[in-house]
Amino acid sequence: MRRQIVALLLLALAPALLAAFFHPRRPSWRTDEITVAVAQSWKDALWLDARPRDAFEHAHVPGALLLNEDEWNDLLPAVLDAWNPDRNVVVYCSSLSCQASRDVARRLREEAQFSRVFVLQGGWEAWEKTHR
């Protein structure tokens, strides 16, 4: 059984290596999650709020634009207007346990070809904690 296991593990390695170099949707090796402190140190960052509209309207990071998946097509043009390739983009959602910011960050990379997109660790909850 051990030989079979090793053979199967090695067999899976070949396509995985090919995917690492040539897959059009391969993930970036660069860490894309940042803390509030790091994000704040970027004076020219473009902040994007991936939460639902009502949460954004209740409160948001100063200067942040709303960009959630529910209103993607309506909201994206404003983001594209504000963006330039030299600006770091910081996407956040409600807390550590949400996934909207990751989904928005991925779509920005894949669909809008944004290159410097980061996800805020802890989201809005972490931001609020450091600004109480």
Partner: peptide, 29 residues
């Protein structure tokens, strides 16, 4: 695999480098 990496990252159990390795290798395994 980029989407899968994002899904794995959401579990918050691994570093990003490990997440990428898992995202590339695990589907083929």
């Amino acid at each position: 695999p980029a989407q899968f990496a994002s899904d794995v990252q959401n579990y918050r159990l691994l570093t990003w480098t490990s997440v990428v390795m898992v995202a590339l290798y695990l589907p083929w395994l």
